[in-house]
Design a protein around this nucleic acid. Structure first.
Lengths: 221, 221, 221, 221
DNA sequence: GACTAAACGAGACGGTACGTCACGTCTTGGG
DNA sequence: CCCAAGACGTGACGTACCGTCTCGTTTAGTC
C-alpha cells in the first residue's frame, strides 16, 4: 500500500483496515458538492495525474488538467500536494508500482548487471523512461520535487546497490578501499547520461560494457 | 566571436564584418522606438538573458523579463530565437565563453583527468553549475533546447574526449575493443549524476576515483 | 430579548424558559466538538457576526469568517440563517439594541425632529452608520436581506412616524389630505440620500431645514 | 461620444477623428490571438457589460462573465477598469445614454416636476431602475464605484437641480435663505428611499405630493 | 445508568470567481 | 524597412468562499 507517498503527513492512522480504492460498487452518479471519502478522491487524482503524465508529458502536466480529469477541485489538490512536481511524482509512483528488490546471488557483478538491465528495460521499453527524464528535469527548478525524488526514488534504489557492494566488500569480492557511491555513479549515472543528455542507445550490451570497464579495466593489458 | 549560436539560420552573411558589441559610443539615452542596429540589439538581449539566467535561475527566466531588461521588444526576440530554452542557452554561452581545448599530453588518463577536473571546477566553483543543471533539466521538455544543447554543448565536448581516447587506442594505450563513448558516460555521466540527481559532493578526489575504478578496476586483486 | 430575529421559523417554542445568553459560568475552555446548547452557540455566532460586521465591514463579512471567530461550524450557521445578509442583519441587531420608542409630546413636528435627530446621531456619531449603509447596499442584490430589512428595520421605524402623523392629522395639526408616507420619504429618505449617495454632511441643522421646508415651505412669501 | 468614462486616463487624444465602433465590415472570423484595435475591444466589453448588467443583475455581474461574453480577456479588462463596479457603471452608461438637459421654463417648480417625473419614469418604466439600485448598493462597499457614481452620475444630475433653484432664488421665486441641497435631498432622496428601501410605489402622483408638501406645506392652514 | 438521537466542531469536497503572470501573435507608430 | 512598445486572446497559476456533505464527539432526553 503505497499511496500518496509525497503528500503532506496526514491522518494515515485511520482505523479502517484497508478498504481503500474501492469505488462504491455500482458506478452511481456523483452526488455533487459535499464531501467524498478522502481515499476515493486521492485515488482519482493520482490516477488522473499518472495518465496525464504518461500521455502528454510533463510539459502538459497541469494542476488544472489533473483536477479536470479527476473530477476533483484544484483546492483539494493544493491541500495535499505542495507543488506540481510532487503531484507528478506521486502520480508516477501510483502508475508504475516498481518493485525494489535487490536479490543477492553471491556475485555482486551479476547482481549489478541484473539491476542495471532492469533499469534499462524500464527506461527504454516502457513509457516510464521519458517520464523519469522529465521528472528529473523538472526537479532542477523545483526543490520540492528534487527532495521528494531523492528521498523516494533515486535514494532508495541507489542505497540498495551501495549496500550490495558493501556486502561484497565484506566477503572479499571487491576492493576494500572502494567507494561504492562512485561506482553507482559510474553505472547508473552512465545510463542517466544517455537518457538525459546524449540520447545514445541504452542497451544490455551497453550495460555489459559498463561492468566490463570496471572489472577488466579500460587500459591495454 | 560566437554570438547567437542557436538562432534560426538567418542572414549570418550580413555585410557588417564584426562591429559587434560596441554601443553607440556615447552612452546616450535610449531614443525610444525606431530601428537599432541588429548587432547592438542582440548583444543587449544576450547580455540580459545571461544575467537573468545566472541571477534568478531558469524558473524565473522569462522572455518578457529578458525583453524588459534588454530594453528590447518581445517581437525582436521571437524573431531570432525559437524557444525560451534556445535563448537561455545562448545567453549562457554569451556569459561563459568556455574554452574547448583538449590538449594531448600523450597520456590519455592524465588528459581525461585534466578535463574532468576543469569540468568539476566549472560546475562546483562557479555559478555555471546550477545553470547547466537547469538547462539540462529544461531540455527534457523542450526539444529545441535539447537539440541545441546536444549540438552545441555536450556533443563537441564529449567528442573531444572520444577522439582523445581513439588516439590513445591507436597508440596502444587503451584496449582496442574499448567503447570510448561508454567510458565518457562513466566519467562525465558520473559527474552529471551527482549534479542532477544525488547531490553528492563533486570533488577532485571523486574524479580520481572514477579514473582509478576504470584503470585499476573495482574487484579485489 | 430579541435574539436571532431573522432566522428561519424554528422551534421557538422550546420548553426552556429563558436561560439564554448565560455562559456556563466558569469561563472554562471550549470543550471541542460535541453538542452545545443552542442558545450559547447562537449567542457566540451573533456576537462574532456583529463584531466582524462593525470592524471589517460588509465586504469582509464572510460566513467562514463568522464561523471561525465564533468557534462554530458553517453547518450550524447555515442551519439557522438563510443568507449572509440575514446573518449580518441579525448580528447588527444583536450588537446595537436600538430602542423603538416614539413618544408623543402633542407636537408632531417636535416629535419628528427628535426622532430624526436620534437617527442622524446614530448614523453619524456611531459605527452603525456605515454598517446600515452597507446593509441597505447588500439588500439590493439579496432578496432575503431586503425582506428582513423592510420587515424588521425600516418598516417598524417608519410605521411609528406614520402613525404619529396620523394622530396629528386626527387632532387637526396636519393637513387632512396629507400623505404621511411621502413625508417620511422626505425626511428619512433625505437623510438616507446623504448617507448612501451624496455624502453631504448629516447634521442637526440639516434636520431642522428639512422640517422647515415642509412647514414654512420653500417658496418666497 | 462618451465612451469608457470611468476607465483610467489614457491616450484619448488619438488623432484618428472618429472611426470608432465600426467593426471590420464583413463579420469575418476573429483572427485569434494578436492585438485588436483598442476601440473595438472596448466597445465589445462595454456592450457585454451592459447586457450582462441589465439581464442578470449586479449579483451575476462578473468580470469573467463580461470577458467571456465580449470575447475579450480578463487581462484587458483589468488593464482599463479598476474594479468590477467601475466596469459595471461604465457598462450602464454605454447602454443607457441618458440626456442631462435641465430646461429652464421660468417656473422652477414646474422644472423640478419635469425632471423628477423623468427620473421616476426611468426608474420604474425601464430596466434601469433595478440596475441603478444595484449600483448604488454596490457602491456602499466599493469606494471606486462610489466615487465614480458621485462624480459621473448623481453629482452632475443634482448639480443641475441645485443651479436651477439658485437661479430661481435670484429671480425671487424661492426663499432667499433656502438650502437648495436639502431640497434636492427631499425630492430625489425621497424617490431613492422608495427605490432602495421601502419599495412603495413611485408614481407621478407621488412626485406631485413631494412638491406640494414643499410648497403648500404639510401643516393645516 | 445505559442507550439513543440530535446537534455540534471540524473540515473535506466540487465549484466559481478572483486577480496575476507569461505566453506567442498581432498592430501601430517612429527613426 | 525594421524596430520599440505594448495590446490582444489564451490559459494556468494559487487563493478565497461558497454551499453541501461526511465524520466522530458530546450532550440531553428516554427507557
Amino acid at each position: 500500500m503505497r499511496d500518496a507517498v509525497i503528500q503532506r503527513e496526514e491522518e494515515e492512522t485511520n482505523s479502517t483496515p484497508a478498504p481503500q480504492d474501492q469505488r462504491p460498487a455500482g458506478g452511481e452518479r456523483r452526488r455533487g458538492r459535499g464531501r467524498r471519502p478522502q481515499a476515493e478522491v486521492r485515488a482519482d487524482i493520482l490516477l488522473a495525474a499518472g495518465r496525464l503524465l504518461f500521455q502528454d508529458g510533463m510539459a502538459a502536466f497541469t494542476i488544472e488538467g489533473v483536477a479536470a480529469r479527476a473530477g476533483a477541485s484544484k483546492t483539494t489538490i493544493y491541500k495535499w500536494w505542495d507543488s506540481k512536481g510532487a503531484l507528478a511524482l506521486d502520480g508516477y509512483f501510483h502508475a508504475v508500482e516498481e518493485t525494489l528488490a535487490f536479490p543477492d546471488s553471491g556475485n555482486v557483478i551479476d547482481d549489478l548487471r541484473t539491476q542495471l538491465r532492469a533499469f534499462v528495460h524500464l527506461v527504454t521499453k516502457t513509457a516510464a523512461g521519458k517520464v523519469i527524464a522529465e521528472l528529473v528535469g523538472a526537479a532542477q527548478t523545483d526543490p520540492v520535487l528534487a527532495d521528494a525524488l531523492h528521498r523516494l526514488y533515486s535514494g532508495p534504489r541507489l542505497a540498495l546497490a551501495v549496500e550490495a557492494m558493501k556486502r561484497a566488500k565484506a566477503r572479499g569480492q571487491l576492493r576494500a578501499d572502494l567507494d561504492a557511491e562512485a561506482v553507482v555513479d559510474q553505472l547508473w549515472g552512465a545510463c542517466y547520461h544517455r537518457l538525459l543528455l546524449t540520447g545514445l542507445p541504452l542497451t544490455e550490451q551497453f550495460v555489459d560494457q559498463l561492468l566490463r570497464n570496471l572489472t577488466v579495466g579500460i587500459e591495454r593489458d
